[in-house]
Amino acid sequence: MTLELASSKETVTARADSPFAVRGLTVSYGQKPAVFSVDMTVEPGKMTAIIGPNGAGKSTLLKAALGILTPLAGTVTVYGKPVEEQRHRIAYVPQRASVDWDFPTRVIDVVLMGLYPQLGLLGRVRPVHRARANDCLARVGMEDFATRQIGQLSGGQQQRVFLARALAQGADLYLLDEPFAGVDAATEKAIIAVLKSLRDAGKTVVAVHHDLSTVAEYFDNVFLINTHRVAEGSVAEVFQANHLQDAYGGRLAGAQMDALRLS
């Protein structure tokens, strides 16, 4: 009895400190839940991968937690407070394919969107804002593309622009939805370098990730989901054959498991 009390107390403090804590989140698109009663507690100052098969609710989890979708149930806290009070501390990078890149705007204008919370409805864009936007573009290696129309960029370049916009927000918690989907190898390297530098500066990074072969190299922690939460913890603890089989079922062949060199 006392043991249980102690452990639940511990969970409560972990939750209060957590940059991103989800409790009982349930989302449904129709009859079937896409995410069912999921708990997640992200460790501060770490890079966490959200892993799971297609349709496991990885993106849905992030979207519902941020209020882009309306969940059926659940609570989300960011650094111990409701999301609504902490929006200024969150930067979200949507899936690249979720927007129309033919939209008539330039690279620099997209990055400046990240400064909207500071600028407000009518605040003037001053040289200091432009300098900040250009600086964020330089951090993702896109400083030479500032005045390009966004439709003229490659997929990898578009993804970097999205990351630059998130950097401009100056957040403490970065939530990224499939940041490496359909990007070239150079972009993948550039993005992971930026994310690691954020972590090293004490920020928290959570990314929906689909490439199992790079999980151990890129991330500190793993959150395994298949509609339900499967497992959560450090890569060493969670990224194991038994947990992966639980999450992916028969969809991971033996050869793939071997390729991941898991025990």
Binding site: L66, V99, V110, L121
Partner: peptide, 20 residues
């Protein structure tokens, strides 16, 4: 008056929601 919100939410509605 609503130039910026209109532009941002027309381009990327998901992002627009996450900034409130």
């Amino acid at each position: 008056l609503f130039w910026r919100p209109l532009k941002i939410s027309t381009f990327d509605e998901g992002f627009a929601r996450t900034i409130g």
